[in-house]
Amino acid sequence: MFTIKQHLIVGSIEEGYEILIKNRNNMILGGTAFLRLGNKNINIGIDMSNLDLDYIKEDENNIEIGPMTTFRSIETNKLLNDKFNGIVAKSVKEIVGIQLRSIVTAGATVASKYGFSDFITALLSLDTYIELYKGGIISLEEYLAEEKVPKDILVRIIIKKDGKKAIFKTMRNSKSDYALLNCGVSRLNKEYRVAIGARPGRALVKIIKEKDLMENNEMNKKIDEILDEMKFGTNMRASGEYRKMVAKVLIRRSIEELK
């Protein structure tokens, strides 16, 4: 269990940022559902729950998700159920139970770069960006590629409304358990964007051109190629070899459904 010396509800993101950078043990608090499983010693827990950061909205070009939006809000939101074949909403539906999903926040999951995250995998298969308070807007792919979690505040998640069709698939040993593998695939302009998460490392994305999949054997070959570029690890849920085999099946099924 973690400990917090001081729990502080801030009045603005700026105030939160100033406190965050003062001490390496100061930390932004999300839903704190996963945090409780660790044993972090937090000096000041910065709480942004009073800043109206729980929202899902759209404009002409983008869908925006506020960092304090819960997974339950994402799961039940009409917009996220309608766009991209509902991939974003579907990705959170199997996470434990409704009670937990009503606590877990989008911002904490993405900012922490959780490797097991179903949500990150789905976002990564789309054209997704995040806005950091100081770091500005960067692609999710770029953010995940950085080793460390920066001392910054995730202000919003931005998904480009580009008309992608998408599919999310997940493999679990039992319902409501953490995934042993996640797969998000989207298709636009004869190109497939394949995101694989819970390898168990952070999600990665690869591109497959439609022309490379023309024949049946070519599809297997191309999928093998991108899987060889990813590392699959072993933990209590599955071996790396098994994960790789599952990934191949899920990617293939996703592509066939998106054809």
């Binding site: 729990h7 009670q99 606590i103």
Partner: peptide
Amino acid sequence: LLNGKPVLSCSTLAIR
């Protein structure tokens, strides 16, 4: 129930 919605009280900060 928090405002009528089921939540886990073991994982919800009391201050919230």
